[in-house]
């Protein structure tokens, strides 16, 4: 087995579900999240020797994000065939689904793709505004607008989120741009 295959296998085994969780927050669909992660892994590893192995998860997360943002056509195709798969989307985990979790999922679904990406990168990946702007290739001002609009819309559905306002305004550089949060 080639070194890159071993790396791929190890990454899927050790970080596969974490990557799917991240993709799930972005797209809101478990099966599509798995597809997103697989596409991102293929995209990353197909680049071959240009990907430093120590940063590979960060590259995969970045590829998940770009694939999600670029993937409108794919999502339409998936929407056309998803009924054939017939897997319950809100799959019960080890703990019963809470109303809050369902509401958060619905609230995320009310955001535009870029708003949603900004919210997930800021509040789940714990990235700074400049880092998000770098990932999305937009200005920091645009990121702040997306965050502000996104948080406001979620608040209208979920209720007040005081910590979110404070965190959204915080643009202190403290997160790694490329790798994101490896612990999740």
């Amino acid at each position: 087995m080639a070194a890159w295959e071993e790396s791929l296998d190890a990454l899927v085994r050790t970080r596969g579900t974490a990557l799917v969780g991240y993709a799930y927050l972005l797209c809101g669909d478990r099966r599509e999240a798995e597809d997103l992660v697989q596409d991102a892994l293929v995209k990353t590893y197909a680049r071959g020797r240009t990907t430093p192995p120590e940063n590979v998860e960060g590259y995969v997360r970045r590829a998940v994000l770009t694939t999600y943002l670029d993937g409108f056509r794919r999502r339409r195709r998936w929407a056309a065939v998803r009924h054939l798969v017939a897997v319950e989307d809100a799959h019960p985990g080890a703990e019963p689904a809470s109303d809050a979790r369902v509401d958060v999922r619905a609230a995320l679904g009310s955001l535009s793709p870029r708003e949603r990406a900004c919210v997930v990168l800021r509040f789940y990946e714990d990235m700074t505004v400049p880092a998000i702007a770098d990932q999305l290739a937009v200005s920091q001002g645009a990121v702040k607008r997306y965050l502000s609009d996104g948080v406001r819309r979620m608040e209208s559905l979920l209720g007040p989120m005081p910590t979110a306002h404070a965190t959204a305004a915080d643009d202190v550089e403290h997160a790694q741009v490329v790798t994101g949060r490896g612990a999740r």
């Binding site: 974490a18 799959h91 979790r101 789940y124």
Partner: peptide
């Protein structure tokens, strides 16, 4: 968000 992401961990 962390809890929601965790729902796919099975």
């Amino acid at each position: 968000l962390a809890r929601l992401a965790g729902t796919v961990h099975d």
